[in-house]
């Protein structure tokens, strides 16, 4: 069987999502046996010009350089996978949409010119994204089962159940009852409710569930 040609790339982001692939310690060697990692700038070469089957893209587009890399890679790959919350929803860097530039720009960005040229946006606002692996950082089991599926020609199924499912299964008390603003009921789970297990509110890193909510006005 021909091995799938896979690339792991990162644009603006903390590289934590690529790390959570490496954190797959116990089964990392098994995974590497199944696929051909053609490029991984993090640990291997760049290889921007090769052809790929799957590209796992971490991070979001925050400047024109990112955009250029993203468009180039999209042209070279059959499938594009958004790895992690930044690529999927924009996550923390995209908070810039909700703040006034005047308030912070002079503090940090006065010398870095290229930061001003584009608003930070998740990768699906520039290119077609075929699959998402959500989470900040993504769950390593989810990455593993995703790779397991694509290697065997199974269409990977995203986990769409809300965080409440796992939170209740972990026998946590409800944070909403304690008057904490938890986004668990409307957020996609699959994280084993790691935040709420430790008494922190869910802040929605995995994006909204696909359960068909309507916004209440």
């Amino acid at each position: 069987m021909k091995k799938l040609k896979i690339g792991f790339y990162g644009i603006t982001g903390c590289a934590g999502c690529q790390l959570s692939v490496i954190f797959e310690e116990d089964e990392l060697l098994d995974i590497i046996n199944l696929i051909e990692i053609q490029a991984w700038p993090f640990i291997k070469e760049l290889n921007y010009d090769k052809k790929f089957d799957y590209i796992f893209m971490e991070g979001l587009v925050a400047d024109n350089e990112d955009k250029g890399i993203l468009l180039k890679l999209r042209a070279n790959t059959r499938f594009m996978v958004a790895l992690g919350a930044c690529a999927h929803t924009g996550c923390i860097p995209a908070y810039r949409h909700f703040t006034l530039k005047e308030n912070y720009a002079h503090l940090l960005y006065e010398k870095k010119e290229n930061i001003k040229d584009i608003d930070p946006n998740p990768i699906d606002s520039f290119v077609k994204v075929d699959y998402i692996i959500p989470g900040c950082p993504p769950d390593k089991n989810e990455i593993r089962s995703f790779i397991k599926d694509i290697v065997r020609d199974i269409i990977p199924k995203p986990y769409n159940n809300p965080v409440c499912v796992e939170c209740k299964r972990n026998n946590n008390s409800c944070l909403l009852d304690n008057k904490k603003p938890c986004l668990g009921p409307i957020t996609r789970g699959g994280c084993n409710s790691v935040c709420t297990n430790n008494g922190l509110e869910c802040w929605g890193c995995r994006g909204p569930t696909q359960q068909g909510h309507k916004m209440q006005s």
């Binding site: 089964e27 569930t209 359960q211």
Partner: peptide, 25 residues
Amino acid sequence: LSCSACTEMCPTCYCHEIHDNTEIN
């Protein structure tokens, strides 16, 4: 919100799903 907290906490709900988990290698 379709969060299913009600059924997770229900003492009588018995719906379940069955799936296969294969080894990676």
